[in-house]
Nucleic acid binder design. Structure first.
Lengths: 200, 200
DNA sequence: TTTTTGATTGAATGATCAATCAAGTGCGGT
DNA sequence: ACCGCACTTGATTGATCATTCAATCAAAAA
C-alpha cells in the first residue's frame, strides 16, 4: 500500500479539521491542499468520514510523540509537567492568533450525533490525555492527600484545558486562559498544603 | 413587523442549532420545522448567518428568564445557586440522552473563524453567565478568603461546566460530569475552610 | 374604492458538495 | 516480453445547499 499518499491526505486533513472543523472542510479542500486527486482519496478511504476516523486514530497513536514529548521537553517534575502540558496549548493559541485550540475538543463539540466509532475515538483520545495527567499525579502521589481521587483530578485538568481554550478563543483574550490555569494552580497548592498538614 | 413568524424562525433555529449545530442545520431544516417558506425567512433575515445572530441575541436577552430563574427556583443560598446552575445542565444532558449540551459552548467551538459580530455575541453570552456566577460569589463574599479573585473563580465555574459537558457527552457517561463538579465542590470547600482559618 | 405596504408563497437558480468511475500509468513478478 | 495489480487521473454525477424573485395576498391608509 502506498503509504505516502494516504499519509499526505491524513496530515492535510488533520490540519484542516483543526483550523476549520470537520463540516467546514470540504473534500476538495483536502484534495487541493494535499495535491491529491479525488480518485486517490476514495481509493484509500470509503468516504470523508473515514478520513476523520484515520485522523482520530493518528491523534490516538501519536499522543506521546506528537504532544507529550514536545510539551515535556526539559520538564521532570510531575506537577510541572501538568502545567507544561497546559502551557503547550497556550502557546499554540497565541502563536496562531487563537486559531488552533484543541483539535479533539473542537471535533467533540462539533459532531453532535457522531458515528459510534467516531465517538469512541474521541473518547479514547480524551482518555489517553487523562491517563497521561493521571500518571503525573501518581508520580507525585506523596505530595497529595491520601484520599485524593487522582482520576477525577486528571479529568478535571482536561476540563480546565478545554474550558480555558474555549473562553480564551472566543474572547481573543489570553487572560481568560491564564486565570483559569491560575485557579487550578491554587487548587493544587491547596491540596499540597492539605497533605503537609496530614504529615505533621 | 409580523413578530410571530420571525419568532417562530428564531425558536426553531435555536433548537436546531442546539441539537445539530450551525453548519449541520440547513436553511430548509429550519423552514420545514417551523412551517415557514423560504421567502418569509429571507424577508426577515438577509441570510442564514443573521438567523444565528438573532438566536445569540435571544440567548443574551433571555438568560435571566430562560436559564437562571428556572435553575434557581427554590434555591436561595448563593453557593447552592452555583451548583444548581450546573445541575440544570446535568439534567438536560441526561433527559436528552446527551444531545443537549451548552448551546453557546458548542457554537463557540464549531465556528472557527466567525464574523466579529458573532464572536462578540458568543463572548457576551459567556460574559453574562460569568456575571451571574460572580454575583453569587459576591453575595457569599464573607464565606471566602478576602484575597479571592471572584471573577477568576466565576470564569472557572464556566470552564468546569463546559469541560464537564464536553467529556460527559463524548463518553455518554454522566460520571464524568459528576466527578468534575465534585472536584469543584472540593475546591470551594477548601476555600471556605481557608476563610474560617482567617477568621479564627 | 383605490393604493400602499408588509408578509407570504414556492418554483427556480447557480454554487458547492461528496462521491463515482472508466481510462490510464508504472512497477514487480513470471 | 507480458501480465496483474495497486495506484492515479480528472471529468462527471446527482444531491443538497443558500439564496432569489416575481407573483400573490391581506389589511390598513388614502
Amino acid at each position: 500500500m502506498n503509504t505516502a499518499t494516504r499519509d499526505k491526505i491524513i496530515r492535510t486533513a488533520m490540519d484542516l479539521f483543526w483550523v476549520k472543523g470537520y463540516q467546514s472542510t470540504s473534500v476538495s479542500d483536502i484534495l487541493s491542499r494535499s495535491q491529491v486527486h479525488s480518485g486517490s482519496l476514495y481509493h484509500f478511504f470509503p468516504g470523508k468520514q473515514d478520513v476523520l476516523i484515520a485522523v482520530l486514530e493518528t491523534y490516538r497513536d501519536e499522543i506521546e510523540v506528537g504532544l507529550l514529548n514536545y510539551a515535556w521537553e526539559g520538564v521532570d517534575d510531575p506537577v510541572d509537567k501538568i502545567f507544561a502540558l497546559l502551557n503547550g496549548y497556550r502557546t499554540h493559541l497565541l502563536s496562531t492568533e487563537y486559531q488552533y485550540g484543541c483539535p479533539i475538543g473542537s471535533l467533540a463539540l462539533e459532531l453532535h450525533e457522531p458515528d459510534p466509532r467516531i465517538r469512541e475515538l474521541l473518547a479514547m483520545n480524551f482518555n489517553n490525555w487523562v491517563d497521561a495527567v493521571e500518571l503525573c499525579l501518581e508520580e507525585a502521589t506523596d505530595r497529595f492527600p491520601e484520599s485524593l481521587d487522582r482520576r477525577a483530578l486528571a479529568e478535571f485538568v482536561l476540563t480546565i484545558m478545554e474550558g480555558a481554550i474555549m473562553q480564551a478563543r472566543t474572547a481573543h483574550d489570553i487572560g481568560l486562559f491564564d486565570r483559569n490555569v491560575e485557579v487550578l494552580r491554587g487548587h493544587i497548592k491547596l491540596l499540597m498544603t492539605q497533605r503537609e498538614l496530614e504529615d505533621s
